[in-house]
Amino acid sequence: MSAVLNEDYYKLLHELQAIDFVLVELNLYLDTHPNDTNAIQQYNHCAEIRHQIAYQYETKYGPLKHFGQSLSGVPWSWNESPWPWQV
């Protein structure tokens, strides 16, 4: 794990957290508005952005998730510290 406490690490995590929150909001909104095409387009757009941000984070700082939900570098490091609650 590279230096964790640098500015970019937290900026990336903050962006990821924000885009995840937007996706949660849109998901809950779409549960009750299944035919709102604008919201669906925004949802798909945000999902792509989330994918890019996560990929950007994982190439620099290691996998976010395990069990195949994130690509792993060498060495195997998903169980290394810091854990999400320690960051």
């Binding site: 903050h14 962006e15 924000a18 929150f21 945000c46």
Partner: peptide
């Protein structure tokens, strides 16, 4: 809508 950072 808010921007993502503001929404958070």
């Amino acid at each position: 809508q808010f921007s993502p950072i503001e929404a958070l």
